[in-house]
Design a protein around this nucleic acid. Structure first.
Length: 210
DNA sequence: GGCCAGGTGTAAA
DNA sequence: TTTACACATGGC
């Protein structure tokens, strides 16, 4: 089996009802500052560990732009320990919160006007994290691609020479979608890919399901 | 015990 | 410009 383009893949995945159990737009608390923290926490980590860290942060009211900045670094490290790489991630989270405050004043303003370029200048924010923040925290029509996406497309017979090339392939589906729907479509497209790959992670020939 | 997870930064070649 | 390694935890 192969797919001709991103829209066909999107339709195939949609027919599998992969997001039945997921929150709207797939990412928990879509459109909030908490997503920014979750994006950093999920780097080279597993989501159920990220959920542990987020639960710690929530229980200590540390999911706001303000509280992260004033929170002692040791306390932050402690809260996010379950998801690993906690020293670097705690620094990244604090620095990013500080910069968002200084540059934009509020999360709302940040999410309305921040650019990919600005995010990429921040310590600890690479292309995938920048896109994830734009897509799931800022409600933008921006596709996120990750290891799962790459692995799936390779299994379907495609090759890409860079992150951006893979992202562009996925974003080709925009020609089939109303522009106002793109934030939701990209958010769910990436979500469906992750859910699909989680289900079939140990399957050698993942294309046999189609 | 080694490998990996919803990556990124840095230093060496 | 590419490659290798560190960052850290916990489940398999």
């Amino acid at each position: 089996m192969y797919v001709d383009d991103a829209y066909e893949l999107y339709q195939q995945l949609s027919s599998l009802n992969l997001l039945q159990e997921s929150p709207p737009f797939w990412w928990p608390n879509y459109g909030s500052f908490e997503v920014v923290l979750g994006v950093i926490l999920t780097q080279n980590s597993q989501w159920h560990r990220v959920e542990c860290s987020l639960e710690n942060l929530r229980s200590q009211s540390l999911c706001t732009l303000e509280s992260i900045q004033s929170c002692p670094i040791e306390m932050l490290c402690d809260a996010i320990r379950p998801s690993g790489l906690y020293n670097t991630k705690a620094q990244y989270m604090k620095a990013l919160a500080l910069n968002i405050s200084r540059e934009f004043g509020s999360f709302e303003t940040f999410s309305n006007i921040v650019t990919r370029e600005w995010l990429l200048q921040q310590q600890g924010i690479g292309k995938e994290s920048a896109d994830a923040i734009l897509c799931y925290a800022c409600r933008r029509g921006e596709m996120v691609v990750d290891r799962y996406t790459h692995r799936l497309l390779v299994a379907l017979g495609y090759e890409f020479e860079s992150y951006d090339a893979l992202k562009e392939w996925c974003e080709q589906l925009h020609v089939n979608v109303d522009e106002t729907q793109l934030p939701q479509v990209y958010a769910e497209f990436h979500g469906m890919i992750v859910e699909y790959m989680k289900q079939h992670a140990n399957r050698q020939n993942i294309n046999i399901i189609f």
